[in-house]
Amino acid sequence: MILELKNITKTYPLKSGFGTKTGKVVRAVNNVSLGVEKGESISLVGESGCGKTTLARVIMQLIRPDGGNVLYDGKKVDRTNIATYRKDVQMVFQDPYSSLDPRYTIRRVIDEGMALDKTRFKTQQEREMRIQKMLGAVQLKQDMLGRYPHEFSGGERQRIAIARALVLNPTLLILDEAVSSLDVLVQEEILKLLTSLQKDFNLTYVFISHNLKVVKRISRRVAVMYKGKIVELAKTEDIFNNPLHSYTRDLLSAAVDYKSVIRDMEIRIPDGAQLEDKGGGHWVMPE
């Protein structure tokens, strides 16, 4: 197991209109545990606000969880090993329009991470070679390097963002809604690219999305999140063919026709409930 999340909880305090704390909290991520195998691709799906992105940022150590641990290669990630962890785990962000610094040329965007790692990339030449290689890997042209992000389309920007993430040669890539803001054809291109990159660079993907079609294409396992908890975790075909949790069923039918879902009744998750093993790697939260 390359990455292991143990009882991750992240809460945000609710503030009143005057900015004072009310004592109430929102549990963005509530006691989530998840293991990621090396070389697999696992998807996190769920509606907006269910805590997917918060979880991704906790994995990236961009925000500190209130409870629980992130284990990488069996070791707890903390201040002492964060530097090496950052080299191994990279993230592609949701919005390609804001994930690239508008003042940086593409060369600087890609180069920035390498410039920090003086031991691995010693000379300017070495770095330039690596940039060229990455550019080839994400199928961008050489003459784009001197240009600024605002000159590129969404799909091209997302390729640049992927190149930036890959340049440090990570083992785990977190893709937070990486194709959601792109149109369907470009989505398709990026998904193809991601699939081939996974083979070429031996990557592990944690793919976060609300789009089930995309999820079905790219992932081997799917974790369905609802209100900060994982309610169902199974192989992709099991989720699509044999959904066990009522929220998963809602989500699937909504993907076909959003009118078919009648959501007057809130789905409740009992306090302290744990995922139950239904066999064959299919885990479900009891209702």
Binding site: R57, M60, Q61, L62, A83, R86, K87, V89, Q90, M91, F93, Q94, D95, S98, S99, L100, D101, P102, E112, G113, L116, D117, A161, R164, L168
Partner: peptide, 13 residues
């Protein structure tokens, strides 16, 4: 909160 800042952080700046 902008993503390029988060990206810079995750690169290890």
């Amino acid at each position: 909160e902008r993503e390029f800042v988060l990206a810079a952080k995750s690169i290890g700046l």
